[in-house]
Amino acid sequence: MRIFDVRGVIGGLFVVYGLIVTGIGLFDSPSELDKAEGIRINLWMGLGMLALGLLMLLWLRLNPPPEPEPDDETAR
């Protein structure tokens, strides 16, 4: 069975989430910061998610899924 690689999905979603949340984190209002005990949580979580996403994509790039055998279809 030949299927796309899940690392691409995780990588893609987390890059998008990372960009959105980092973006918000750059412009958090004082009241938002207050709620989060003064931590720039959006910025840090956003960057963290971005890093996770990029790592997944990098892993996929460096270690792509092996090509299936030609007669893979008949094997169970």
Binding site: V6, G38, I39, I41, L52
Partner: peptide, 27 residues
Amino acid sequence: SSAIYNEVLQFFVILAGLLPITIIGLV
């Protein structure tokens, strides 16, 4: 396949969602 792939994705989303609660809460 679809269930499993989504579960792997969910694993990361769930952790990313819960982690800020622990971080801010501990501070």
